[in-house]
């Protein structure tokens, strides 16, 4: 009796890591952008400071890490949630959500490389 082992771990790894990272940092990031939305732009979010942060390779790594993991966390959980809502076309849902995550990952890389 050999049932194929699932390949879910590929996406579950980033899901779990992403869930942890977003739990730690997303609320405070939202707080910063909320200040900006209210008209008080925090110093980190001014063009000069954010540009300087993103131009630094360590800054790039931090931004890329946060966006990559948040994206894949949310994408995978969305797949499960749509299943929970009764949408049974799991293969298509998986293709769609992971496509969005891949697109976001590539875009992030592309924009980060343009900032120097």
């Amino acid at each position: 009796m050999t049932v194929a082992k699932s390949n879910k771990p590929i996406v579950w790894g980033p899901f779990a890591a992403g869930g942890t990272i977003t739990a730690f940092v997303t609320p405070v990031l939202v707080l910063l952008t909320l200040f900006a939305a209210l008209g008080f732009v925090p110093s980190l979010l001014t063009y000069e400071n954010l540009h300087a942060f993103a131009a630094n390779w360590l800054g790039k790594l931090v931004i890329f890490g946060i966006i990559l993991l948040s994206l894949w966390h949310a994408a995978h959980r969305l797949r499960v949630t749509l299943h929970d809502f009764g949408i049974r076309a799991d293969t298509w849902v998986a293709i769609a959500v992971y496509f969005i995550a891949s697109l976001g990952t590539v875009a992030t890389l592309f924009y980060l490389l343009r900032i120097s």
Binding site: V3, S6, K8
Partner: peptide, 15 residues
Amino acid sequence: RQEVIASHDGVWECS
């Protein structure tokens, strides 16, 4: 046991 519980119908159906 992993052959059974790490399969698609195994632990990965748990959310």
